[in-house]
Design a binder for these strands. Structure first.
Lengths: 151, 151
DNA sequence: TACGATTAAATTGTAGTCAATTATATAATA
DNA sequence: TATTATATAATTGACTACAATTTAATCGTA
């Protein structure tokens, strides 16, 4: 006969991640308030600052988001003047996202603000490294599980 | 003159947490599929299995969720037969959530299924502990920041 | 060339999240 | 006691997130 392991919420790693994610959201809500950006909009801009111009598909690959999430999000960024959306003349299926001058001009201001907020988190490099390592490991194992379940 | 630290998405701890959270969601979507539960519904049940009966307010304190999230979520759990929602006769403002017999009967089956899926993650106790510790630390620092910004 | 498969975005529907407001009940107090 | 303040849920609106479907364009191939 099998012994059932009772599950306590506070012991659960998933709940720690879930909670940390929400607190990070709040953190960035404060950090990004001067720019009227949400966290998902911010990470979309982050990848664009690195790689623009990009197709919606490519952005989705970087952020693990599909068009159901990205299309409205990008329309909001467009209406706020951060990006432009244009169909590629070479392939009319793809939409090319480019950064506006405003987005390029604001980049360092955003970086500056975020960096200074991050400094206020008072995490040492060692602590930060330990967190990154732990999450990378977790990521790998979750990937392996999710991959295995697809088949 | 100040040097601006460029921000790369893949280096960002927030993005690791954001990604891990989504992968955990997918993990639990698979684990909970036999019970037709979402992850937020599952953690609501977890705290109820520990503490029921509970008011909506008290559940919200445990999960860091407000009534805007909980009211519809609990209505779904009710319509699927997991819980009952009744106004307290002592204080008509509060709604008391109780578990149904079905929820009590299913508890061990859910635990069993989740435990066996967690085993498939192949994380050693040491690795699990390291992740928990890292996230607890992160939690504290995020709390400290968010608390400081309120004033 | 024409037709079937594939691909990229957009759309639709369901669910979660939070801020802000509203409705109702209870508590505090003038 | 009447009025004000406070507390609890519910509601509304905006934004994510994802599964499933739809639309349109492109590719492969018979």
């Amino acid at each position: 006969m099998q012994e059932i392991q009772p599950i306590r919420l506070d012991n659960q790693l998933c709940f720690r991640v879930y909670t940390a994610n929400k607190k990070f959201n709040k953190f960035y809500q404060d950090a990004l308030k001067p720019f009227d950006l949400t966290y998902p909009q911010y990470i979309a801009l982050l990848t664009l600052w690195e790689n623009a111009p990009m197709s919606v598909k490519k952005i989705g690959k970087h952020l693990h988001l599909d068009s159901g999430t990205l299309t409205p999000l990008l329309k909001r960024l467009e209406s706020h003047g951060w990006i432009t959306r244009t169909r590629s003349p070479q392939d009319e299926r793809t939409v090319i996202i480019e950064l506006t001058d405003m987005a390029l001009n604001q980049r360092d201001k955003v970086f500056d603000r975020v960096n200074s907020c991050q400094n206020m988190l008072n995490l040492t490099n060692d602590q930060l490294e330990a967190c990154m390592t732990a999450l990378e490991l977790l990521d790998e194992h979750l990937d392996a599980y999710n991959q295995a379940q697809k088949s």
